[in-house]
Design a protein around this nucleic acid. Sequence first.
DNA 1: ACCTGAACACCGTTCAAGT
DNA 2: ACCTGAACACCGTTCAAGT
Lengths: 237, 237
Amino acid sequence: MATSTSAGGQTGAPRGRTGRPPVTSREQILVAALRLIETRGWQRLTIRALAAELGIGTTTLYHHVRDREDLLVQLIGEVVAQMDRPELPADPRERVAVAMMTVHDTLAAIPWAAEVLTVDGFMGRLGDTSVWIVEVVLAAVVETGSTPERAVEVFRHLWYYTAGEILVRARSAVGTLDRDRLLPEGQTLFGAREAAALPTLAAIGDQWPQIAARDTYAEGLRALVAGLLGPAAGAGG
Amino acid sequence: MATSTSAGGQTGAPRGRTGRPPVTSREQILVAALRLIETRGWQRLTIRALAAELGIGTTTLYHHVRDREDLLVQLIGEVVAQMDRPELPADPRERVAVAMMTVHDTLAAIPWAAEVLTVDGFMGRLGDTSVWIVEVVLAAVVETGSTPERAVEVFRHLWYYTAGEILVRARSAVGTLDRDRLLPEGQTLFGAREAAALPTLAAIGDQWPQIAARDTYAEGLRALVAGLLGPAAGAGG
DNA sequence: ACCTGAACACCGTTCAAGT
DNA sequence: ACCTGAACACCGTTCAAGT
């Protein structure tokens, strides 16, 4: 764990500090939050419910986390810290892909990540492992002949694509049942009139959901890497 | 306007319908919502505030929109419908880029779009203009030699990138002030110890925010298009 | 057919005191 | 130093009646 409000042991021997002793710690809060998510689902993780789980006053939490968003970011940082660091390929373009795929897979497995995925400087706030991944990506991009400045831009492109994929997929997984209400039974997406103006959509017909359900993240990511850094052979810039 | 619950005029001559007359309509609701956003800001657009603005009971709104999310999607549909349809280049790859840039620019200008950008089938639910844009993209991809099926995959890649860019940028615009609280004055991003392990990040130093603030959407989009469909010359597949 | 108040079941966060 | 109940200022949505 990276930071510590009161390094060392639990609430025990007072080390020259004065005042009322703490009833909880950052560690206890994060553990309780993960337990709450596991037992009741992430939608139920509220500041109030978390305080109840810890058996402390609701407002006490605000001494340990800045706000709800801060709590979620710290929580994801905790999960990411336990992530295995991937084996990195020698080829820099492939190394970029593997690093981003690791981030993607880790975050996509956390459904509550979607809530805070877009906060400013998200990756930088998660802790050592994710900062390490950013460094890996930047270094690999520089290895292909780019400046560090350009590497930051490349990383952001990759992050936009990755965050977008996770966010869009996180929603479509749930919304499957709702579509029935929008399109009444038996009704196709387009009538005959529209089919003339929208031939390609008409050709796809009701196949869209099946095609959209495919996991094509890795393929798209590699296409983006190739587009940004050139194909695996020459050194781009 | 695409749909109409009671085609024709306002609440006037009853056309053989029985029961209590409506106090509002889809049109009135959308107009009032846009007015509310303009005067009080989009954060203040709540079901309750909107009903108050219209001078009707809160629960009456649920006869005209399914829920808050549905209201926002319809609202964005309204804005997108007023969008100018862009002039389309002859080159299919450039046509794809222009079409997506049009969507991007329109949605990026609507800060409240971020709330519902990731709902399932978002583009398809917005109405004629956005469906037309999807058709343009699909047709252009097919023109490069892809199957319609593959075109759907390509569109989704482009949509992930576009949605991610809009969502991440929507947040970072607001969060600038908050960073000061995370990094106390004068403190750099990394100490000397970390600089050795993270040389590329160290080289960038405090330049990150400036670089990240650049608008590089178009460049990244073109890179993705090139990576997916090949460079402007040959026909990919 | 359509409208509605009241109620349900909650939120995050701040304040001003405690201990 | 740290903790806390009460309060502030709200939410979206459903129910069971109205008219």
